[in-house]
Amino acid sequence: MSFSIDEDYARRLKRRHLASRVFERACLVVTWSSVTILAVLLGLLLYQAWGWLDLAFLTRHNHYEADRAGVLSGVWGSCWLMLLTAFLCVPVGVGTAVYLEEYAKPNWLTRQIRLNVANLAGVPSVVYGILGFTVFVRFFGLFDRPQTYALNFGMTSIEFHLPLGAVILSGGMTLALLSLPVVVIASQEALRSVPASLRHASYALGATRWQTIWNQVLPAATPGIATGVILAVSRAVGETAPLVVLGAATQISFNPGRINSVVDIVRSPGKLANVPFDSFTALPLLIYGWVNEIDAERFAHVAAAGIIVLLGLLLLMNGAAIYIRQHFRRKIRW
């Protein structure tokens, strides 16, 4: 040492450096242990699914025999649920957040709303399932028996029942309610992080409040909002309980709206109109069903294969979230 420090200080310094190193190691251990657990889980799943997860599994509908079971209708069901959920919860969730952050005066009522939105985020998903069952599937039991209605629009006709029953629309609305609190909270957070200087600059140029929100605040908040929406929706799409409560089936051997490929949509877009009113099954439901099969040993492999498909789907979603975030960040360039 070229410079002198007193002995006491030197001793304490040694201890401080030691504590620093110990803490770093501790964090490392904690991180790696969770990563390891995840890796073991994935490894086990892959091992179990090996030989079962193949193209046939992806292109078959479900079946009561293990070696003939497939995920096709579940994949389509989950994708439609995801789209519908996002489609429903984005306008409502972002609208609520905009109102709470940009318009609402801080009074008793808005405080209650804020508080309860946060509370709703903690409500178990089964409860949303019961709500969805009562309101959407059964319409509070107002109808004696389901009535069938048909609407004709030239080329296409939409057929639906009232009450809705366990159709994709019921599932989508239920999952939208489930994701709503998280979407609202994430959007509020994103709106709040937009710098005030941006709003002020807009107001100073004679912009109305709405013009400021639409042209400046929302674009700046989009990455945050999109991330929140995708995380909430991918969370919701992995949910089993609400769909079980709604009464969605597992043995379904057709795709919603009889749409079997993207080509089908291009060829006859009219089919899209029937998707929301069709029965469905979803990946988590299929997995739940397989786990409960009597032929447990063989169906364990099927379930593992199904879980990997579901994980793949969610991974894809998260990839999309990252892409959107980066894309908008680049466009905004603070």
């Binding site: 941006l198 004679g206 400046q216 905004i332």
Partner: peptide, 28 residues
């Protein structure tokens, strides 16, 4: 505020193109 322009201490360009920044006032 349209009649009275304001320039802030910290420059606050919008995260848009140079053109769109200047065009913002007339557009809105």
């Amino acid at each position: 505020r349209k009649r009275i322009g304001m320039v802030f201490q910290k420059s606050t360009p919008f995260p848009k193109s140079i053109f769109d920044n200047v065009a913002y006032g007339p557009r809105i």
